[in-house]
Simulated scan of single mutants.
Amino acid sequence: MLQTRVIPVLLVHDKGLYKTTKFKKPKYVGDPINAIKIFNEKEVDELILLDIDASKKSREPDYKMIEKVASECFMPLCYGGGINNLAQIRRIFSLGVEKVSLNYIALSRNSLIEEAAATFGSQSIVGSVNIKKNLFGKYKLYDHVSKKTLDKPIIKYLRELVDKGVGEIFINDVDNDGMMEGFNVELIKEVTAGLPVPTICCGGAGTLKHCHDVITHTNVSAVSAGSMFVFHGKHRAVLITYPERNELDLLFKGLK
């Protein structure tokens, strides 16, 4: 396994694989299973699968889709989307998924994190947060279902998630989603400083240098990306790929 994880994030929408820009304008980029087969061949260490419809439509996770993905996936898989209770988490784990990401439900009922961590272990529970600038240019937590920023302080909320028992935190920068212009290093540095659990940042990766920069200058233990692995060239042609392992080993040699 790589010393520093570089994790592909797959977004499922209308049963297909899509990529968004700033959480808007979903663009179809292929079939999730085909992407997973490519990532298997590239020996990717970990994969994150997010159903971006489930919570918005108030529906349960698509268990058939999850089972199909998990059966094809040779690497540890984290799933998020539509999770509301322990029974759903138990069923998802029974399908071969190693971690669940809790985002929307945690904003209103973070007691589920405590229950899930006590039942399944903290290592399998990821606390996911979206961060976005409000109209006044201040960074706030963002609820992707209501499409509104929230007044709850970001750092305080992240620490609440840790106190409730998450074993990992996933931070998504909405304003940088799909932009491929680099991570907001200062923002990530500020919100992850001192967190006692591993953190993953997402939003802005366009090159491996972007990944190197955020790992070098912040407290994150892993980087994740979507567009970087599916779009290529100035016309953003779709070509799903992943860097060679020796390239990543060389890039992160000596870090963390």
Rank of each mutant, 00 (worst) to 15 (best):
residue 2 L to P: 15
residue 2 L to I: 14
residue 4 T to E: 14
residue 5 R to K: 13
residue 6 V to S: 03
residue 9 V to C: 13
residue 11 L to H: 09
residue 12 V to D: 07
residue 12 V to E: 05
residue 15 K to Q: 12
residue 15 K to T: 14
residue 18 Y to N: 05
residue 20 T to H: 02
residue 20 T to D: 00
residue 21 T to F: 10
residue 21 T to Q: 15
residue 22 K to F: 08
residue 25 K to L: 12
residue 31 D to V: 07
residue 31 D to A: 07
residue 33 I to D: 05
residue 34 N to Y: 06
residue 34 N to C: 12
residue 37 K to H: 09
residue 39 F to G: 01
residue 44 V to T: 03
residue 44 V to C: 03
residue 45 D to R: 12
residue 49 L to K: 07
residue 49 L to Y: 14
residue 53 D to L: 01
residue 55 S to A: 11
residue 57 K to I: 14
residue 60 E to N: 14
residue 62 D to V: 05
residue 63 Y to I: 15
residue 64 K to Y: 13
residue 65 M to Q: 14
residue 68 K to Y: 02
residue 71 S to A: 10
residue 74 F to P: 00
residue 75 M to S: 04
residue 78 C to N: 09
residue 80 G to T: 11
residue 85 N to L: 07
residue 87 A to S: 06
residue 87 A to M: 08
residue 88 Q to I: 03
residue 93 F to E: 09
residue 94 S to I: 04
residue 94 S to H: 04
residue 94 S to N: 14
residue 95 L to H: 07
residue 96 G to L: 00
residue 99 K to E: 08
residue 107 L to I: 06
residue 107 L to H: 11
residue 109 R to M: 10
residue 112 L to I: 15
residue 113 I to Y: 00
residue 114 E to P: 01
residue 115 E to G: 10
residue 115 E to R: 12
residue 116 A to T: 14
residue 116 A to Y: 03
residue 117 A to D: 06
residue 121 G to I: 14
residue 125 I to W: 01
residue 126 V to W: 01
residue 130 N to M: 10
residue 139 Y to C: 09
residue 140 K to E: 11
residue 140 K to H: 04
residue 144 H to Y: 12
residue 146 S to Q: 15
residue 147 K to H: 11
residue 149 T to Y: 12
residue 150 L to W: 03
residue 150 L to R: 07
residue 151 D to T: 13
residue 152 K to E: 08
residue 153 P to F: 05
residue 155 I to P: 03
residue 155 I to W: 07
residue 156 K to R: 04
residue 160 E to Q: 09
residue 161 L to H: 02
residue 163 D to Q: 09
residue 167 G to Y: 01
residue 168 E to R: 15
residue 171 I to G: 09
residue 176 N to V: 02
residue 182 G to Y: 02
residue 182 G to V: 01
residue 183 F to R: 10
residue 184 N to V: 10
residue 186 E to A: 12
residue 190 E to W: 11
residue 192 T to E: 00
residue 193 A to S: 13
residue 198 P to E: 09
residue 198 P to W: 03
residue 200 I to G: 00
residue 200 I to C: 00
residue 201 C to S: 08
residue 202 C to D: 13
residue 204 G to Y: 08
residue 205 A to Y: 01
residue 208 L to K: 15
residue 209 K to R: 15
residue 210 H to D: 15
residue 212 H to F: 15
residue 216 T to K: 12
residue 216 T to G: 06
residue 217 H to G: 05
residue 221 S to D: 10
residue 225 A to T: 07
residue 225 A to V: 02
residue 226 G to E: 05
residue 227 S to G: 11
residue 230 V to L: 06
residue 238 V to Q: 05
residue 240 I to Y: 01
residue 245 R to G: 06
residue 251 L to N: 06
residue 252 F to L: 03
residue 252 F to C: 02
residue 255 L to G: 05
